[in-house]
Structures are given as structure tokens and as C-alpha cells.
């Protein structure tokens, strides 16, 4: 955990209710699957947001406006300085992937997979990506994943783009050695039920501190109680108790 100040470089809508914010600051030590905890004006608790990318001194966050905190964030302009806790959470295990990892994201579960895809491709892995959304106007980052060199499949529930249905309906398009997933819990459960390989899933829970002190975000797992903010948010498929 590190506590530093970042300066907003850009902050603009990316898709329906979804914003992309880039910030300048110390990103040393940030790994794929981790999150940052942001102090916002008018809020008491910090807001945990998953890291989409960290490259040099530029941190990229993609967030959905779901309440007062994220709506406040959406109003911020370039140049504003924010107090962040960084390097929070365990992150994905990059060495579990095998040669053909498949990354599955649903909605705002997509962002943390971007940095993961980038790192896996750097390792020479053949990366497949399934991005699931409700409808075409919610889609984001399809080209960004493709330009990293990943093979990308899109699913929409209403069939307005890509494969009609859920992310699990596109599983047949890929041969894969391991699955990394992030998204709503029902999606993760469906993925878990369908895949035959190992996997690592990023879970979400309402957090207090974000660094393991308050035990607000604990979950029961096959390996005992885990604080999602500190011992997670990434858990192995086998230890998740659905």
C-alpha cells in the first residue's frame, strides 16, 4: 500500500454511465487485478476502483457512475489532485495462465483485464478475451484489447453486437488453458460452472478501509475467511463458495 497524490490528466465518458479517468502519479508496484482507493470531496469513506492500466506515471481507471461518489468523480476536471491509496489487493497470478489464457469480463468488470492482457501478451501468451455487455451502446475497450494483440469476442444480451447472450455463450470460440474473470457474481458463477480449466476470479464487496483493517468486506472461502480488499479481490476458482 502506498498513499500518494495523483493529478487528473483526462476524465471523459466512454460508454453509457461509464467514464475513463487518467491520472499522473507514482504507479510503482501496481500489478494487474489490484485497485486504488480514492478520497473524494464530500465523501467520508474512500472509493475503491480497479486499475485498468498503469504505464509509466500514468494510471488509467474506468468506472461506472452508480452513486454519489462515482457521480462526484465524473464531475472532476483535468488538473484536479486526488489522494489515492495504491497497490491494494493481491492481483492476478500471471504464472497460472498456461499458453492460451482466456480473459472474461462483464460490464465494469472489463477494465482490470486490460492490464492483465497487456502483461500476459508481454510474456508471449496467446490471449483470448470475451467482453460481455447488455447492449451495444455499453461496449467499451474492444479496439484497445485488439490493438494489444488479443483475440476479442463481444457478447450482448440483446444481440445488438457480437454473440447474442452471455459471456458463456462465446466460450466455444476459444481453446484455452486458464480463465481470468471479473464481473457480476452471477456471471462469475456461470463461468465457473462451464469451464473445465482452472481460473482466477475477481470478486467485489462493499469495502470500508480497502487495506485489511476493518474486516468489512470479508467472504467465506474454502480456505477460511478472507478480506477481499487484502487477501483478494482475486480468488482461485476452487476456493470460492457460491
Amino acid at each position: 500500500m502506498k498513499n500518494t497524490t495523483f493529478e487528473i490528466l483526462t476524465n471523459a465518458p466512454l460508454a453509457k454511465d461509464v467514464y475513463r479517468m487518467t491520472l499522473s502519479g507514482d504507479t510503482d508496484g501496481v500489478v494487474p487485478g489490484q485497485f486504488v482507493d480514492i478520497q473524494i470531496d464530500g465523501g467520508y469513506l474512500r472509493r475503491p476502483i480497479s486499475v485498468c492500466d498503469a504505464e509509466g506515471r500514468v494510471l488509467t481507471l474506468i468506472y461506472k457512475t452508480v452513486g454519489k461518489g462515482t457521480e462526484e468523480m465524473a464531475s472532476y476536471k483535468a488538473g484536479k489532485r486526488l489522494d489515492l491509496l495504491t497497490s491494494l489487493g493481491n492481483g492476478y497470478d500471471l504464472f497460472a495462465s498456461g499458453d492460451h489464457p482466456l480473459l472474461i469480463g462483464g460490464g465494469v468488470g472489463v477494465p482490470p483485464l486490460y492490464m492483465l492482457a497487456k502483461e500476459l501478451i508481454k510474456q508471449g501468451k496467446d490471449v483470448g478475451v470475451i467482453l460481455g455487455f447488455n447492449t451495444s451502446c455499453e461496449i467499451f475497450y474492444e479496439e484497445e484489447f485488439a490493438s494489444l494483440g488479443a483475440r476479442v469476442a463481444i457478447t450482448t444480451v440483446d444481440g445488438s453486437r457480437g454473440t447474442k447472450g452471455f459471456v458463456t455463450d462465446a466460450l466455444g470460440l476459444f481453446d484455452y488453458t486458464f480463465v481470468y474473470a471479473c464481473g457480476p457474481k452471477p456471471m462469475l458463477k456461470a463461468v465457473c460452472d462451464k469451464i473445465t480449466t482452472g481460473g482466477q476470479f475477481s470478486l467485489e464487496e462493499r469495502m470500508g478501509c480497502g487495506f485489511g483493517a476493518c474486516m468489512g468486506c470479508s467472504v467465506k472461502t474454502a480456505n477460511g475467511f478472507k478480506r477481499l480488499c487484502k487477501d483478494g479481490p482475486v480468488l482461485n476458482k476452487e476456493e470460492i463458495l457460491w
Partner: peptide
């Protein structure tokens, strides 16, 4: 284990746990 989640909420001037 304690209570089921969610077990944290924001309030004006503080929080609930």
C-alpha cells in the same frame, strides 16, 4: 465470521459498520 455483507455503509460525517 460476523454478519452477512454488505456490512459497511457511508453516512454524512462518517460510516456505519
Amino acid at each position: 465470521f460476523g454478519n452477512p455483507t454488505p456490512r459497511i455503509a457511508e453516512t454524512p460525517g462518517g460510516m456505519l459498520n
